[in-house]
Write a protein that binds this DNA or RNA. Structure first.
Lengths: 245, 245, 245, 245
DNA sequence: GATGAATGAGGCTTCATTCAT
DNA sequence: CATGAATGAAGCCTCATTCAT
C-alpha cells in the first residue's frame, strides 16, 4: 500500500515476480503431464524464460518440484486454518474442516496424486512428511480444544480419530471422483455421516457407551499420553543427533 | 499322469516356471526402485535371463507391470475372500476382513503405493479400476448379508460405510507405517475402533457383542500398545546413536 | 511321367517341395515388405516351418534372398528366350523381346526395385552382375543374328544399341507406372517408337519391314492410346470427386 | 555493418555452417554405407558433434536423409539448367544436357542408387517424385523450344522422347560404370549416338522418313496433343478439387 | 530332423544440466 | 546476467542366429 502504482521495484521484486510465474506454470504443467512428463525446455518456453534461467532459481528439476509442493501445502494449510472460525464450538470447527478438506482434496486431486507419486522418488524424497504434519495439526488443535471443552471424552485416542477423519475423507474423495458426476450432496452426505459417527462414538453429551469407561481406562489413557510425549522427545533427540554428523 | 511327481515337466511347465520367476523378481524390483527406476537390463540380470528373453514373455515393460498388478490384485482379492468364514455372523466377517485388509495394506504398502503411482500413466493406463472393484466387492457382499440378517439398518447407504471402512484402514496403515515401529496392538486398536464405530453408527442392536468385550481385555491391549511404542522409540534411539560412529 | 500319381517320393522330393514353398513365400514377403522388413520369424510362420528349419535350407537370410533373385532371373531369362521364335526375322524378334521386357519390368517392378536395392548391400553383394548378363545375352544373340542377316549395319556398336534398348524400356516402365492408369496402348507406343528408332538409325534397308506396317494400323493404335488416356483421366477424375464426399 | 568481412558471424551463421557440415558428412556416409549402414553415433563422431546435437538439427535420421536428398536434387537441377546456354539452338542444348546428365549420373551414381533404394521406404516416403519432376522439366523446356523452333516435328510425343533420353543415359551410365575403365570417349559415343537417333527419328530438317508421314499421321498427332492438354487439365482439376476439401 | 526359446549386441532417441557467448 | 546449443549417458526394444530338447 505504501507503494504507488507505477513504481517499479526493479531487482528483487521483479525477480520474485518471475519466480512466482515460474512456480505457477511449473505447477500446472506438473499436474497436467506428471513429473517425468514435463521437460525443462517446455517449461522454459511456457514461462518465457530460457532453460538456463530456470536453473538460477532452482538448481534442479527436483528442487523446483519440492518448492512447488511446499508452497502448495502451506497454501492449503493456511486455507484449512482459515476455514474454521475459532469462535465456533469445536465440533462445528471439525465440520468446517471436513468440508474444507473434502473440497480441497477433490479440487487438487491430481496434484495430491502427484505428490504421493513423488514420495517414492527413491534417491531424493521430494515430498517430506513434515509438510503433511503441518497440515494435520489443524485437526489436532481443534480436537484438543474439543477435549478441553468437554465435547469429546478425554480418553479418546486422538490418532485413531484423526486417521478416521482424514482417511474417510480422502477415500471418499477418490470414490466421489470415480463417479461420473460429482454432486455436492454426496459431499454433504459424507461429511454429515463422518461427523455423526465421531459424535456418536466419541462425543460426551450423548449417553454413549464410551462414557462408561472406567477409572482404569482413564489411567491407561494418561499413560498413553505420557508415552506420546516421551516418544516425541526421544525421536526428536534421535533426529538431532543424526543431523550433527 | 504317466509322469511322476519329481519328473521334469519340459517345455510348457519350464516356461511357466520362468515366467513366474520373472514376475516375482520384477515385482520386487518395481517395489524397491519404482517403475521408472527399474532398467530392463538390471531385471534381466536379476532373473538370470537375457534382456531379449523378457520380451518373449511380455512385449513391453508396461505389459510386464500390468501383469504383475493384475496378479497382485487377484492374489489379495482371493486372500480377502479366504479371510472370512461365511459361517460367522456378518459383523465378525467384517472384523476379519478389516484385519486382513489392514495387515495386507501394511505388508504390501510399497506395492500399493506403486500401484497408485501408475494410475497416472498418461498414455497407457497400467492399473485399471476394475481390479479395485473386484476387491471391494468382498466388503459389499458381507455388508449386504449384514443388512439381510438385520445386523445393520437397511437404510444405511452402503458406499458411505465402505468409504469409511477402507478409508480409515488405509490411512491408518500409512499412519502406522509412519511410526518408527509397527506394533500389532496398534492394529488391533484401529480395527476395534473402526468396528465399534460402525456398530454404534449403523448397527441395530445397541448392546452389541463387540462392546461386551471385557474392560480388562482392553486395558491390557492399551498397555501393550504403550509399551510397544516406548520400546520401539528407545530401540530406534539406540540404533540412531550407533549410526553416528 | 515316370512317376505314378500316388507314389510319394519321400525324402528328396518332399524337401524340394518345401524349399520351393519357402522360396515362393519369401519372395512374396520380400516384395511386400522389403528385405529388412521381413523377419525370419514371420517368414517361418507363413510357410509353416520353424525358424530353425529355414536355416537348414539357407544358412543365412542373405543366402535365401540370393537364391530367390537367382531363380527370378533364370525364370525371366527363360521367359525372354521363349518370347521370341527363332524363325521370325531378327527385327521381329527384337520387337517381341521388347514387348516381353516391358511387360515383365512392369509386372515385377517391385521385385526388380528390391533387386536394385540389394546391389548396395555393402558387405555382401546379394545380387551379382552375372545374372543380369545372362538376361541381356538374349538381346545380344538376336542382335548378332540381325547383323548376320544384313538387317543391321555391321559397324554398329552393339552395346550402344543394347543400352538404348534396355534403358528406354526400363525408364518407360517407370514412367508408365508413375501414371494414374496403365494403358496397354502406351506400351505399344513405346515399343513401336523404340523399334522404329533402331530401324531408322541402324537398319540397312530403309524401306524395312516395320515401316511397311500399314498406315491404318498405326493410326488405329494411336487413336486407341488417345482414347485410353482420356478414359483413364476421366475415371480418375470421377474417383477423385467421389473421395470428396 | 560494423562487422568486417572476416568477422565471425556468431550464432546463426555458425549454426548454418555446422548444419552444412553435418549434411555433407552424412551424405558421404550414406553413400558409402547405405541408409541402414550408417549409425548415428558414427556420424556424430565424423562431424565432431555429439549424438544428441544432431537431433537438434534434424529430429530424425529419416529427416536428415530427406534433407540431403532434397539438397541434392536442387543442386543437380540447378546444374542442369546452368549446363545449357539458352542462346544455343535447342538441339545443341539437348546435347549439353545429355552430357551433363550422363556425367552427373556417373559421378553421383552411388547416391542416385541410394535415392532409388529409399523410394521404397514403406512407412515414410523419404524421396518424393516431385524432386524428379523438377529435374526432368529442364528437358521438357528445351524440347518444347525445339518444337517451336521447328527443329523437331510438332507431332512427336514428348514423353516418348523424354523416356528415351533419360532411360538411355541412365542405363548407359550403369553400363559404363560396369566396365573396368571409364573412358570419356564412351560417354561421347553414347551422347552422339543418342542425339543422332533423336535427330534422325524426330528431326525436321533432315529428309528423314518421318517427313514422309502422311497427312493422316499429322491428324492423329494433333488429336494426341489435344488429348494431352485435356488430360492435363483434368488431372489438374481433380487435384484442385481434392485440395479444397 | 525339427523346434522355438534364448541370446545379446547394438540401434535410435531423449533430456537434465552445463557453459561459452 | 541471460541464453540455448551442446552434451552424452542410458533407456527400451529388435531380430538374425544358435542349440538344447
Amino acid at each position: 500500500m505504501a507503494q504507488t502504482s507505477a513504481a517499479p521495484l526493479t531487482r528483487r521484486q521483479k525477480i520474485e515476480q518471475k519466480e512466482h510465474a515460474l512456480l505457477w506454470a511449473a505447477r500446472q504443467m506438473f499436474v497436467e503431464h506428471g513429473y517425468d512428463g514435463v521437460r525443462m525446455a517446455a517449461l522454459a518456453k511456457r514461462v518465457g524464460m530460457s532453460e538456463g534461467s530456470i536453473y538460477s532459481y532452482f538448481s534442479t528439476k527436483s528442487d523446483l518440484m519440492q518448492a512447488i509442493v511446499i508452497d502448495f501445502w502451506r497454501e492449503i494449510a493456511d486455507g484449512a486454518r482459515a476455514s474454521v472460525s475459532s469462535d465456533d464450538p469445536p465440533f462445528q470447527q471439525l465440520c468446517d474442516l471436513a468440508e474444507y478438506h473434502l473440497a480441497t482434496v477433490i479440487k487438487h486431486f491430481d496434484f495430491l496424486d502427484l505428490t504421493v507419486t513423488l514420495r517414492r522418488g527413491a534417491d531424493d524424497n521430494i515430498v517430506s512428511r513434515e509438510q503433511l504434519r503441518a497440515y494435520t495439526s489443524v485437526f489436532d488443535d481443534i480436537f484438543r480444544k474439543a477435549v478441553d471443552c468437554g465435547e469429546i471424552s478425554p480418553d479418546v485416542v486422538m490418532w485413531l480419530v484423526r486417521d478416521t477423519f482424514f482417511g474417510t475423507l480422502e477415500y471418499s474423495a477418490r470414490s466421489i471422483l470415480g463417479r461420473r458426476t460429482q454432486s455436492t450432496s454426496d459431499m454433504t452426505l459424507v461429511i454429515d455421516n463422518l461427523l455423526e459417527q465421531i459424535q456418536k462414538s466419541y462425543g460426551l453429551n450423548t449417553n454413549g457407551a464410551v462414557s462408561a469407561s472406567s477409572l482404569e481406562e482413564r489411567i491407561t489413557t494418561r499413560l498413553e499420553s505420557v508415552a506420546d510425549r516421551l516418544e516425541g522427545a526421544m525421536t526428536q533427540l534421535a533426529r538431532d543427533s543424526n543431523l550433527e554428523s
